[in-house]
Amino acid sequence: MRYLCLLFIAACTASLFSCTDSEEPMSPLIGAWENREYVDSLNYWIVERYDFVNDSTYDINVTVRESETGKDLGYRFATRGWYNLQANDFTFTYSEMYQIKNYYLPSRDNLYAPKNELRFSEIDFSDTPTANLTFSSDGKQFELLAECLGYNSECSLPKTYSKIN
């Protein structure tokens, strides 16, 4: 009887340790992704980097390089945002951004600055922006097609991002 009681206690203890809460799968976006574009007129690469920190937070940094994979010379834009990915529907937002003076009018004279010299701007989305996000079959790239907001003419052009880590 004593052995039966010990066996029962051991079975209960083992079942407690073997049961764990099932964790939600982590976002396939987690990690660093880059879109690199060469600008002929400026003779520089503009690099848009998304760092997906966890299942809901990401950082965006837009930097300038002399070569596609070289060292960043400085920053054009930086922000932290929040996102949600459901199938191919990507919703995102950010409220604080830091950018160089005359961000939308780039020239060789005001193309980039050290991160600590970026200027604070606040943005208030009247609606939560959305995009269609499609992964490549190997999961190492995604294409982002953002919905058009009234002030952004580039939104209808898809951008391809490659995983860098």
Rank of each mutant, 00 (worst) to 15 (best):
Arg2Pro: 00
Leu4Val: 09
Leu6Asn: 08
Phe8Arg: 14
Ile9Cys: 07
Ala14Glu: 06
Ala14Met: 09
Ser15Pro: 02
Thr20Phe: 01
Asp21Gln: 11
Asp21Phe: 04
Ser22His: 14
Glu23Val: 06
Pro25Ser: 05
Pro25Leu: 12
Ser27Phe: 00
Ser27Trp: 01
Leu29Phe: 01
Ile30Val: 14
Ala32Gly: 06
Trp33Val: 01
Arg36Cys: 07
Arg36Lys: 14
Arg36Asn: 11
Tyr38Asn: 10
Tyr38Gly: 10
Tyr38Met: 15
Tyr38Thr: 09
Val39Thr: 11
Val39Trp: 13
Asp40Pro: 00
Asn43Arg: 02
Asn43Leu: 10
Tyr44Gln: 14
Trp45Phe: 11
Trp45Arg: 04
Arg49Glu: 08
Arg49Cys: 03
Asp51His: 07
Asp51Gly: 07
Phe52Asp: 03
Asn54Thr: 05
Asp55His: 01
Asp55Arg: 02
Ser56Ala: 15
Thr57Glu: 10
Asp59Gln: 07
Ile60Pro: 00
Asn61Ala: 06
Val62Glu: 06
Val62Gly: 02
Val62Ile: 11
Arg65Tyr: 02
Glu66Thr: 05
Ser67Phe: 05
Ser67Asp: 10
Ser67Ile: 12
Thr69Ser: 12
Lys71Tyr: 15
Lys71Ile: 12
Leu73Gly: 13
Gly74Cys: 08
Phe77His: 03
Phe77Lys: 11
Gly81Glu: 11
Trp82Ala: 05
Leu85Ile: 07
Ala87Gly: 15
Asn88Phe: 01
Phe90Arg: 00
Phe92Arg: 00
Thr93Pro: 03
Ser95Trp: 04
Met97Tyr: 09
Tyr98Thr: 02
Gln99Ser: 10
Ile100Tyr: 02
Tyr104Ala: 03
Tyr104Trp: 05
Leu105Asp: 08
Leu105Met: 14
Pro106His: 15
Arg108His: 11
Asp109Asn: 15
Asn110Gln: 10
Leu111Arg: 13
Leu111Val: 14
Pro114Val: 12
Pro114Ile: 13
Lys115Phe: 02
Phe120Arg: 10
Asp124Glu: 09
Asp124Ala: 12
Phe125Glu: 15
Phe125Ser: 14
Pro129Leu: 03
Thr130Pro: 07
Asn132Phe: 06
Phe135Arg: 13
Gly139Leu: 03
Gly139Thr: 07
Lys140Cys: 03
Gln141Leu: 07
Gln141Ile: 00
Phe142Gln: 02
Phe142Asp: 02
Glu143Ile: 09
Leu144Phe: 06
Leu144Asn: 02
Ala146Pro: 00
Ala146Tyr: 01
Glu147Met: 04
Cys148Asn: 13
Cys148Arg: 12
Gly150Met: 08
Tyr151Ala: 04
Asn152Ile: 05
Glu154Ser: 05
Cys155Thr: 03
Ser156Leu: 12
Leu157Ile: 06
Lys159Asp: 04
Tyr161Trp: 10
Ser162Tyr: 13
Ile164Phe: 12
Ile164Tyr: 13
Asn165Gly: 10
Asn165Asp: 05
